[in-house]
């Protein structure tokens, strides 16, 4: 008895594919259902670890953004208004600076000590010679 294998093969091709796919899927489901406890525990840990950073970041975002802005503003203020920026130029000698400051301080102190004398002097009438000289 001779049969034509080609039509038979073409006809059964889809059935074979269906059977192959169905069996492969059944094995896949069975293998996925039977995973050892240690591996399953690792998968659960991985899933929880994947979820944790996103939740934490979401909660801290409203706090971290203003805090970062404040920190940046404080840093900019410190850079612009740093006390060292008001320091005298480097070419001024220390002895000269000290001398100028010391001179100004002593003059002001002398004025303060002689305030009574200057009050008295201002209350005196001007001498006749001085008025004619003007």
């Amino acid at each position: 008895m001779s049969t034509d294998p080609k039509p038979h093969h073409a006809h059964s091709g889809h059935d074979e594919h269906d059977a192959l796919a169905a069996r492969a899927r059944a094995l896949f489901e069975e293998a996925s259902a039977h995973i050892d406890a240690a591996t399953l525990r690792r998968l659960d840990q991985a899933r929880r670890a994947a979820a944790t950073p996103a939740v934490r970041r979401h909660r801290l975002l409203p706090v971290l953004v203003p805090a970062g802005a404040l920190a940046a503003a404080a840093l900019a203020f410190a850079v612009i208004w740093h006390p060292l920026r008001r320091a005298p130029p480097a070419d001024v000698t220390v002895s000269g600076t000290v001398g100028l400051v010391a001179g100004a301080d002593s003059h002001e102190m002398e004025m303060a000590q002689n305030l009574d004398f200057y009050d008295w002097l201002a209350s005196q009438p001007a001498p006749a010679g001085a008025a004619s000289a003007q």
Partner: peptide
């Protein structure tokens, strides 16, 4: 998303 990952993790591992 948690439930989705739990439903798919075994097959993903395989």
């Amino acid at each position: 998303l948690e439930a989705f990952l739990e439903s798919v993790q075994r097959r993903a591992y395989r």
